[in-house]
Each structure stands twice: as structure tokens, then as C-alpha cells.
């Protein structure tokens, strides 16, 4: 039976390998037909910036990998509104459409899950 799995992405895209490797696991969760959601918080919002080019530093482009999520059946993308306000980011800066959540809405999203992981 499919499980509701939420991935919390809270790390900047290029400071470490965490973002890239986390996205790889999210794509596989999509392939395995789970009910997958993703919540971007804090510096993790930078993963969604448009105009990224990981090739410039010899790596893959995190934003482009995120762009593959819908093809893998992962369409429930959420982002922390207070984080965006703190970082000065809006929809216009992002490469994918997200649903903005305040803290109470994030608590409810987390509460609905079978699994919450990073």
C-alpha cells in the first residue's frame, strides 16, 4: 500500500551534496508510486531558484533535477512562506510552482504523513 511520504528540504543547493542526493531519493519514491510531498524550508528554498547552472562548478543543476519531479509523479510541492519573506524570494524567482504554507499549515501537512524524512 502506498504511504504518504514528506521530504523536508532545508539545505542550500550547492554548499553540500545533501540537496542533490535528497532529490535522487525523492525521484525514486515517485517511481515506487508513493504519495510523495516535498516541503522546502529555510535555505532549501534556494534549490528552487531559476537561472541555476551547476555545470559552472562541475556538477549537476539542482533546479533542473527538481524540474523532473512532475514526470516522476511528484507534484505536491510546498514551500515555507516565512522563509521566503526572510530571504526576499517570491514566485517570480522560482523555477517550479509551489504552494506557500505558513507554520500552522506546515504542521498540518506534517501531521498527515506516514513518513517524514530529509
Amino acid at each position: 500500500m502506498a504511504k504518504r511520504i514528506l521530504f523536508l528540504l532545508n539545505r542550500a543547493p550547492y554548499g553540500s551534496s545533501y540537496a542533490l542526493e535528497a532529490i535522487e531519493s525523492i525521484l525514486v519514491a515517485g517511481v515506487f508510486d508513493q504519495e510523495v510531498s516535498v516541503l522546502f524550508t529555510g535555505a532549501g528554498l534556494y534549490q528552487l531558484l531559476s537561472e541555476q547552472d551547476g555545470g559552472a562548478i562541475g556538477g549537476r543543476t539542482v533546479g533542473k533535477m527538481l524540474g523532473a519531479l512532475p514526470e516522476y509523479g511528484v507534484t505536491e510541492l510546498f514551500a515555507c512562506r516565512p522563509s521566503a519573506e526572510r530571504l526576499g524570494l517570491t514566485d517570480a524567482n522560482l523555477c517550479l510552482p509551489v504552494t506557500w504554507l505558513d507554520y500552522a499549515e506546515q504542521r498540518r501537512l506534517i501531521g498527515r504523513q506516514d513518513v517524514v524524512t530529509g
Binding site: K3, F32, V115
Partner: peptide, 9 residues
């Protein structure tokens, strides 16, 4: 990585 998802389910 399939084993990660199986570990969850």
C-alpha cells in the same frame, strides 16, 4: 535506492 523506499513502506 529502491531499498530505501521499501524500508519506508
Amino acid at each position: 535506492l529502491g531499498q530505501l523506499i521499501e524500508a519506508m513502506t
